[in-house]
Design a binder for these strands. Structure first.
Lengths: 132, 132, 132, 132
DNA sequence: GTGGTCTAGACCACG
DNA sequence: GTGGTCTAGACCACG
């Protein structure tokens, strides 16, 4: 599993791992029922402590992204998000407001932002194609 | 000034204040040269310590959103970001990735997302119109 | 780490610390990836409160001089300034005007000043060589 | 007398006034024995309170730049700096270190810095010529 | 053990 | 009256 840790950005390692797993699921590189690397294996690969990986997996399980089967391993769960539509909209609105606020603050106008977003979105898809 | 603090929300108070001020500026409800509430005043209103408000204002000043005049108060600046284009792009990419990841995970496709974002962007300016 | 605090000097402690760290970095005595003393350790050494050291480190992080890893410590970064060229020029002009004003007032002509500056600049790197 | 106040830069008004008077003296636009505008006059011109101008003049007198003659006004003093050579060198070294540190931090190499400084220095002279 | 946040409260600098 | 700095000390987050 391809995970890149960045020391620079403020997010803690366990969140970086969790986020990137979510990212991989979202872009189709990890599919339902697929098994994740073991806690120890991933820890060794990333040269961080197993505690940190375990915490990331715990986080993911709490969000319903993975299912941990005792003695068997950790697996991507079915793509069914357990969130209500209202909750989904709330989350998206929050992110969109953050993005819009940031972009105005940085002096980037709406059209440019949408263009950038479209490009960025295509990069996401490219990863997916390349992998297959 | 309308600021809502949430204890549950993981983000620290000083960032909640800073983020909400940035939102108010981006949406046009706070305009250049406008004076913010005094450190002590806002602290009392939010029932937090003046130190925390001061830190939020300091944060905003570092980002070029406000300028603080000792003895006079804190004011919205004309807001040209002091960051390099590279840094701006880095920040925007971060936010865009977060949005794209979340939206895919929530089952919202790209076209829908762009449409939602366009709508949300127009609402930003509506606030401004309505208040006048 | 050698840091000298002066009570007389008008500049606040947190800036004195930040400035001296920047000097140590610029003169090559602190190198990228090197770890700084812990917040508590340096605070004890300087007999000031940890809060003040933390503020100095925060300041340095905002300027891109160090990066702080929670739970691990604070480290010298590879140091690319996140500021725009315009902002860089503004800062340098400010410093240059201060230097030019002072030097004229002290009766030092331009050529002498440039010579002194060239010498001083070479001393900067000497520190580095000597220590190795 | 031409004085520009900037709200943006952190320096307090009284220091901006004092510094710019020093600047004017250093560049030859104000000459020994010349009379400065009255406290009230300058305050009105700059739309700040007379208190602030008075404080700037007090500062300048303490530094030996001006002499206040009771009932007559405030005058530029003879260019004789009351500082010892050692003290002069200390001040210049401090400024030069600050400039060198800042410029390295911003990724500007020595040759570029010296070139910029030479340019900046010529601008100083231009002001002087134009005025005469 | 490392840094991050927040409080309560004092004192200073500026206008 | 405005913001800025600092202390002493508590509690939390991360690894």
């Amino acid at each position: 599993m391809q995970i890149q840790l960045s020391e620079a950005d403020g997010t803690p390692y366990y969140l970086q791992v969790a986020n990137q797993v979510k990212f991989l699921v979202a872009s189709g590189r990890l599919e339902p029922h697929e098994q994740l690397p073991s806690v120890r294996g991933l820890a060794q690969q990333l040269t961080i402590t197993p505690n940190t990986v375990a915490r990331a997996y715990r986080e993911l399980e709490a969000e319903g992204v993975v299912i941990s089967k005792r003695g068997a391993g950790v697996f991507i769960s079915n793509g069914v998000s357990p969130l209500s539509n209202k909750e989904k909209r709330r989350i998206l609105n929050e992110r969109m407001d953050a993005l819009l606020t940031e972009s105005r603050q940085l002096g980037v106008d709406e059209e440019t932002l949408l263009k950038l977003l479209r490009q960025r979105s295509q990069k996401f898809d490219l990863y997916k194609e390349v992998e297959k």
